[in-house]
Every structure is written in structure tokens, then in C-alpha cells.
């Protein structure tokens, strides 16, 4: 009887440890919605995924607005939602640079240089990320704040909508977490 109790307590202990030990995972918080920062985020994410690390990207605030699909539209938005929708860049094409944007000239130049240097564009990087099974989570609350709807977000195989507890459960198990 004593033995059995000991085994049960040990089993519980092991389960607890399993819940809390780190795995080979990189979690990224993509907070910014600027071209250069999103490029950096995707290069690091696809790079890490190609090295065999699991990657989760958590898009929140300005970041979540960049994941709207340009061709999709959502109905039933309120005034504030419509305003946010109009003011924020829709899709990767309209993103601005965080520095030296120069009314959009900077962004065009960077995209041109990337093409010349054969760096994949953001749309291509998203496809690569999908192939490498990078998980993208979108913060439900920031979507709600800015009046964004699920039906206007990008099509992506490993997309999910979640809250801060879900994200933290991933992040606390990860070897490293980056904030961009």
C-alpha cells in the first residue's frame, strides 16, 4: 500500500514537471506593424523553423492588423472598427518602414533592394512559414479592440485565435521568447 501511494505521488510529480519543462521552441511576440520589423520577425521565424525548432508567433496590437487579407472584407463593423480598418495597412503590401519611410519611398526602395538581392518578399516568407509549420496566433483582444473580424484575416494553415493565457502557456515552455 505504501509503495502504491509513493508511486502515485511520483507519477503526479513527473506529470507536473512535464507540464513545466522547456521544449525546443521559439516564441515571438509580434507587436509592431511596420514593414522592417515584420520582415525581421519572419526571417527569424523561418530561420529557426528551418533549424528544426518549433516556432510560434503571437501577433498582437499593430502586428495583428497586418494579417488582414487584402481581398477579403468583413461586414457589420461599427464606426470605430471601420476607421481603424481604413487607417491601418491592409495586407503586407501597404506596410510602412519604421525609419526613413519618406512617405512610402523608403518602403518601395527596400522591397526593390530585397528583390534584387533575392530576399523573399513577405508573401513568399508567409508561404515558407506555412511549409515549415510555423504557428501563427492572433490576439483575440486586439482584434476586438480594433474591430477586426475573423473572416477578414489571412488564410493560413496553422492560424489560431487566442488570448494571453494560451500564448503564455507556449512562451513559458519555450527556450526563448522574442518581442518585436
Amino acid at each position: 500500500m505504501d509503495m502504491q501511494e509513493q508511486i502515485i505521488t511520483l507519477q503526479k510529480e513527473v506529470e507536473n514537471l512535464k507540464c513545466q519543462c522547456t521544449e525546443d521552441r521559439l516564441t515571438m511576440i509580434v507587436f509592431s506593424g511596420e514593414l522592417d520589423k515584420i520582415i525581421a520577425a519572419f526571417i527569424i521565424a523561418t530561420g529557426a523553423a528551418s533549424m528544426g525548432t518549433k516556432v510560434s508567433m503571437f501577433f498582437t496590437f499593430w502586428g495583428s492588423a497586418t494579417l488582414r487579407a487584402p481581398q477579403k472584407k468583413a461586414k457589420g463593423k461599427n464606426l470605430i472598427g471601420k476607421m481603424f480598418g481604413m487607417m491601418l495597412p491592409k495586407g503586407f503590401k501597404h506596410l510602412k518602414l519604421s525609419n526613413m519611410n519618406m512617405a512610402g519611398i523608403g518602403a518601395v526602395m527596400i522591397k526593390d533592394i530585397m528583390k534584387k538581392k533575392k530576399v523573399p518578399s513577405l508573401d513568399e516568407m508567409l508561404e515558407i512559414a506555412e511549409e515549415l509549420e510555423v504557428q501563427i496566433s492572433i490576439c483575440e483582444m486586439s482584434m476586438d479592440l480594433m474591430g477586426m473580424k475573423r473572416e477578414e484575416m489571412i488564410d493560413y494553415k496553422f492560424l489560431r485565435y487566442c488570448g494571453v493565457a494560451t500564448f503564455l502557456n507556449d512562451a513559458l515552455k519555450s527556450k526563448s521568447t522574442l518581442f518585436i
Binding site: N16, C162, A165, L172
Partner: peptide, 17 residues
């Protein structure tokens, strides 16, 4: 009625045992 509640509570339970 928060839309992220189902995933969040699941994650919280997994984390806290």
C-alpha cells in the same frame, strides 16, 4: 463570453495541473 476563453482556460489548466 470572451472568444479566447476556451483556449485560455485549457492552457491555464494544463499549466497549473
Amino acid at each position: 463570453d470572451c472568444p479566447s476563453f476556451p483556449t485560455d482556460i485549457k492552457a491555464w489548466c494544463a499549466r497549473t495541473g
